[in-house]
Computed example of a mutant assay.
Amino acid sequence: MKAIVNVYLKEGVLDPQGKTVHHALDSLGFKGVNDVRVGKQIVLDLEADSLHEAQKEVEEMCETLLANTVIEDYTVEIAP
């Protein structure tokens, strides 16, 4: 199975990298961008007996290591 984890800063947490990208896009003439938030994507190749088991295991990975849950949120997508 493949798990895709998207980690991103929580609303209200300053995102200086996102602000820099937003400014650069504006400087390059892309005027329709209202805001930019930069995150990370982690792709895992898993062995699991069920989608439920894989989801549970990946969420535990996120809570333990992959995301700093004080300042970051995450989403998990599991594909067989």
Results as ranks from 00 to 15, higher is better:
3 A>F: 02
3 A>G: 06
4 I>A: 08
5 V>N: 07
6 N>M: 02
6 N>V: 00
6 N>E: 13
7 V>K: 09
8 Y>F: 09
9 L>F: 04
11 E>K: 14
11 E>A: 13
12 G>R: 03
12 G>P: 05
13 V>W: 08
14 L>F: 11
14 L>N: 07
17 Q>V: 06
22 H>A: 03
24 A>S: 10
25 L>R: 02
25 L>Q: 08
26 D>L: 09
28 L>Q: 03
28 L>M: 15
28 L>C: 08
28 L>W: 09
29 G>Y: 08
30 F>L: 03
31 K>S: 10
31 K>N: 09
36 V>G: 11
38 V>H: 10
39 G>I: 00
41 Q>C: 13
42 I>A: 10
42 I>H: 10
44 L>Q: 05
45 D>K: 13
46 L>M: 01
47 E>K: 12
49 D>L: 05
49 D>I: 05
52 H>A: 12
53 E>F: 00
53 E>C: 02
54 A>S: 05
58 V>D: 01
59 E>I: 03
60 E>S: 11
61 M>E: 01
62 C>D: 02
62 C>T: 03
63 E>Y: 00
64 T>K: 07
65 L>Y: 05
65 L>M: 11
66 L>F: 11
66 L>A: 00
68 N>W: 03
68 N>I: 07
72 E>A: 06
73 D>K: 14
74 Y>N: 10
76 V>M: 14
76 V>A: 14
77 E>T: 15
79 A>F: 12
79 A>D: 09
